[in-house]
């Protein structure tokens, strides 16, 4: 009899205290545009694309001044001479439809000459490219604990070609779910 009472008591206690509400936000709230670096090797018969490691990279946001019609640096640096990078995550402007970045690459490319069979080394030192992204911003409500965030839909991306050979949008939706949005090819 006592056993039955004990089981009932434990059951009641479990039911009463198993319904506690978690107050903290456990959802990822950061919305970042993911850019991957790729190298293309092309021969007469084949074309291979492989992930590329950049020796060091520096990325800064550029704000546009409508009065002077010029871009100037943002106060904080997004990536400050970060070593061995294969991808970068950049925040887009939440309240404007254009975001601009200056990316400085330091990289060394080793290619094998198929005729002489000797490795050729090319150095890229402080090669600066500017990325200009146009996008649409929409609100996304997460929860009472997490509030709302801005998510983006990419329209176009323009880049200078000092280091970058070409650039391609692979996924237009930039949200709190991390997926690669842009591929940079060298």
């Amino acid at each position: 009899m006592k056993k039955t009472q004990y089981i009932l008591f434990v059951l009641c206690m479990t039911l009463c205290f198993s319904c506690a509400v978690d107050e903290s936000c456990r959802t990822n709230q950061s919305v970042l545009m993911d850019i991957g670096m790729y190298h293309v090797t092309q021969t007469d018969t084949s074309r291979t694309v492989a992930s590329m490691t950049i020796d060091s990279i520096t990325v800064r946001g550029l704000k546009y001044d409508a009065a002077t019609k010029k871009y100037s640096y943002m106060d904080s640096v997004l990536y400050n001479n970060l070593k061995t990078i294969t991808k970068i995550d950049l925040p887009l402007h939440s309240f404007e439809s254009t975001s601009a970045f200056e990316v400085t690459f330091n990289s060394k490319r080793i290619t094998t000459n198929t005729v002489t069979n000797i490795n050729d080394t090319t150095l890229y030192i402080n090669k600066k490219d500017t990325l200009i992204v146009t996008h649409q911003n929409t609100d996304k409500y997460l929860s009472l604990q997490c509030g709302s965030i801005k998510v983006h839909s990419l329209d176009t991306i323009l880049a200078t070609n000092n280091f970058i050979d070409s650039i391609r949008i692979t996924n237009r939706k930039v949200s709190n779910i991390n997926v690669e949005n842009i591929k940079i090819y060298k």
Binding site: K63, S94, F95, D139, G147, K150
Partner: peptide
């Protein structure tokens, strides 16, 4: 739902959401 706002930590600016 009151007092919800979106703040852009890098580019600056914030917006109050009305629900």
């Amino acid at each position: 739902i009151t007092n919800v706002s979106i703040t852009d930590d890098y580019w600056g600016g914030s917006q109050a959401m009305l629900y």
